[in-house]
Computed example of a mutant assay.
Amino acid sequence: MINPNKLITIDDDDNRALKNCEMEKVLQTLFSLVSTNRNESKMLYRGVSYDFLSDRLSKNDENIDDKTIANRLFYFGEKAQHFRNEAINRKWLNDISDISNKTANKIFDRLSNLSKSKNSNVTSFVNSNSSFFEFFSDKANKAVFSDMINELGVVARDYYWAVLHTAGHIGTNGKSISISTSRSIRQAISFSGKRDTRRYVIFTINRTDHRTKKRLTNEISRFHVPVLPMRSSIYQAQKEETLKAGLFPHDIVGLYCVHTKQLILNPHMFSQLNEKVNIAMKPLIIDQSHFNERLHDLTNYSSWFHTFDREEYFETVA
């Protein structure tokens, strides 16, 4: 699907072919990915349209080309709808770490509402996990659910939010703190837009260790709150992986332009700072000087997120 002759990167805002040493590094990255076990780094794919991505990575209806989109993506990353610059008076889920009772109760209600969905996939998922959804149909369980989230923290909130995110608009009402990716590039391409339009697939590294999810569900069960079977999903064929907050530029391998069949590789992979860094094994080092000012001036994001350990996340207003 990817033509090696269409592999390029960016230098001084201009596209160029890969050097031999850079091609060797790409091959090293691919070898590392196919050699890892299922609990280590894996490649994920996110399909997005030009309208979607340019809306976030530009300002004031700026008409930007593929190079500019790629450059900004490799510097800013991509962020969930929650961070989009909109006049939202949030009454719950006020920030990326909100675990207030109001937020816990709202998540409880949204999970309960999934049982009322007329979407055949959601209905089938609810019926297949009846004991899970029976818990959320009883409002007397709200206090137990809220206490569990307050005790275990934001990781428990994120576990249940991921179910809502996967359900789509009925779950999140279009204001999600997560983004969707797929383990399948073909699925990602199918979500990137219409065939005759400019569209993209973002290649990114997922550093999630699924063993931590198993430990979390064991902790949740101690509170007698139900959990779902591992790898259960509303849309199994989509092979979806829900990621919290968005995509860090430090994890982005490249931007595949479906309309030109060019894969623009993240130039930071080849910088001197990352001479000894394999993105498959470790996040890239990126100079993000003046990040907040540039985010405000060049994008439609109103806030952004950061983390020191990939577990606790913080939100900052731009």
Results as ranks from 00 to 15, higher is better:
residue 298 L to G: 07
residue 143 A to G: 08
residue 73 L to C: 03
residue 284 L to N: 10
residue 278 N to E: 04
residue 314 F to G: 09
residue 57 L to K: 04
residue 182 S to E: 00
residue 106 K to D: 14
residue 150 N to Y: 07
residue 55 D to A: 11
residue 69 I to C: 07
residue 126 V to P: 11
residue 243 L to H: 06
residue 214 K to G: 03
residue 278 N to I: 12
residue 226 P to G: 02
residue 241 E to V: 15
residue 202 I to C: 00
residue 117 S to G: 08
residue 251 D to K: 11
residue 185 I to K: 03
residue 294 R to A: 07
residue 200 Y to T: 06
residue 77 G to Y: 08
residue 124 S to G: 14
residue 14 D to W: 13
residue 201 V to Y: 06
residue 176 S to V: 09
residue 290 H to P: 09
residue 109 D to H: 11
residue 52 F to R: 01
residue 266 N to M: 01
residue 271 S to T: 05
residue 170 I to D: 13
residue 49 S to A: 05
residue 95 D to R: 06
residue 313 Y to F: 12
residue 207 R to P: 01
residue 131 S to Q: 09
residue 41 S to C: 08
residue 263 L to N: 06
residue 221 S to H: 12
residue 268 H to I: 10
residue 306 H to D: 00
residue 98 D to T: 01
residue 79 K to V: 06
residue 277 V to P: 00
residue 24 E to Q: 10
residue 45 Y to T: 09
residue 287 D to T: 14
residue 133 F to P: 08
residue 208 T to G: 05
residue 162 A to P: 06
residue 127 N to F: 12
residue 205 I to H: 07
residue 294 R to F: 06
residue 279 I to M: 07
residue 272 Q to P: 05
residue 7 L to I: 08
residue 213 K to E: 11
residue 184 S to N: 13
residue 194 K to M: 08
residue 298 L to P: 07
residue 149 I to E: 00
residue 45 Y to R: 08
residue 67 K to G: 03
residue 96 I to M: 02
residue 153 G to R: 08
residue 178 S to Q: 06
residue 78 E to F: 10
residue 317 V to Y: 13
residue 34 V to K: 15
residue 167 A to Y: 10
residue 252 I to T: 07
residue 194 K to R: 08
residue 145 F to P: 11
residue 256 Y to R: 02
residue 88 I to L: 10
residue 174 G to P: 10
residue 36 T to R: 11
residue 36 T to P: 10
residue 262 Q to Y: 02
residue 101 N to M: 13
residue 280 A to E: 01
residue 185 I to F: 01
residue 299 T to A: 07
residue 149 I to W: 09
residue 136 F to H: 12
residue 2 I to C: 02
residue 105 N to R: 13
residue 45 Y to H: 10
residue 62 E to I: 12
residue 212 T to W: 01
